[in-house]
């Protein structure tokens, strides 16, 4: 659990789990054991959900060695939520889309595990923290000594630039983009990658939901931004390939 040494209050730790760099930034004085508990949680999630680990519950479900009725209740609840989100997104968020008969819930697990990690942080009484899993994150309180957290939205073509700033005291922020090779977002209906959209950023109370909405809106292509305008409790920023940016009216932009 490497700790980044700097002069800011609290501490910052980074570790690679679930194939992602996970960054925990706490601006309160916290017990390092509590930080370990968060990273232990992410490792537990990886063991249960990874499609790369042979004896994970998901791998065993996919091979037919494990019945859903016998699976861990956590695994069942994540898969149930995946089904709900498929309905909500008109099938654009589909954990079964990659290959028939196999499930890859990693698109939801990342956000869900961060939401649960935030609950651990709350239980320990952390007041000012950010938990970031590969660019999708939950933020609470403020980045002391500043009065809030400032989150840059990655510019789609200029690596060192940002296309906007979200300012918040309590929010989840997720971005899906097809400007990056690492993401495999495609339209489950046509099995083609979406065109005309660089990225979709969704903010709202729950990261798992925000992340699924971002993936779905991106898969919808240019129709996605109109769909985001209908979401309740969630706001969106869509960057189109023609370099137009579309915001829902309540998007929490920094002034």
């Amino acid at each position: 659990m490497p700790r980044v040494d700097d002069r800011l209050p609290g501490g910052r730790w980074v570790e690679q789990i679930m194939g992602l760099p996970i960054l925990v930034d706490v601006r309160d004085d916290v017990d390092e054991d509590q930080v370990s508990e968060l990273f232990d949680w992410f490792r537990h999630v990886d063991r249960a959900f990874s499609t790369y680990i042979d004896d994970s519950e998901i791998s065993r479900l996919n091979r037919g060695e494990l019945d859903l009725d016998d699976a861990d209740p956590e695994v069942c609840s994540v898969l149930a939520r995946c089904d709900e989100l498929r309905e909500e997104t008109d099938g654009y968020f589909d954990v079964r889309a990659a290959a028939a008969e196999t499930i890859d819930p990693s698109g939801l697990v990342k956000g869900w595990s961060v939401d649960r990690a935030a609950l651990i942080a709350e239980r320990h009484g952390w007041r000012n923290y950010a938990i970031n899993a590969g660019g999708d994150m939950r933020l609470h309180g403020s980045a002391l000594p500043d009065a809030s957290w400032r989150v840059g939205i990655q510019h789609p073509t200029l690596r060192q630039k940002i296309a906007g700033v979200v300012r918040t005291n309590d929010l989840a922020v997720a971005t899906s983009g097809n400007y990056a090779r690492g993401e495999h977002v495609f339209d489950p209906h046509t099995h083609q990658p979406p065109t005309g959209v660089f990225s979709v950023t969704i903010t709202g109370p729950v990261l798992a939901t925000a992340d699924a909405y971002a993936t779905a809106a991106l898969a919808m292509g240019t129709a996605g931004s109109a769909w985001t305008a209908r979401l309740a409790s969630y706001e969106a920023m869509t960057i189109l390939a023609d370099e137009t940016v579309l915001f829902t009216p309540g998007f929490p932009r920094a002034a």
Partner: peptide, 22 residues
């Protein structure tokens, strides 16, 4: 929706949200 041209800022932020290729 509010429409704007894409900006390229470099102001200091605490975190960056983006697709995971980088």
């Amino acid at each position: 929706l509010i429409q704007e041209a894409l900006q390229a800022q470099s102001s200091g932020v605490d975190m960056v949200s983006g697709a995971t290729d980088s």
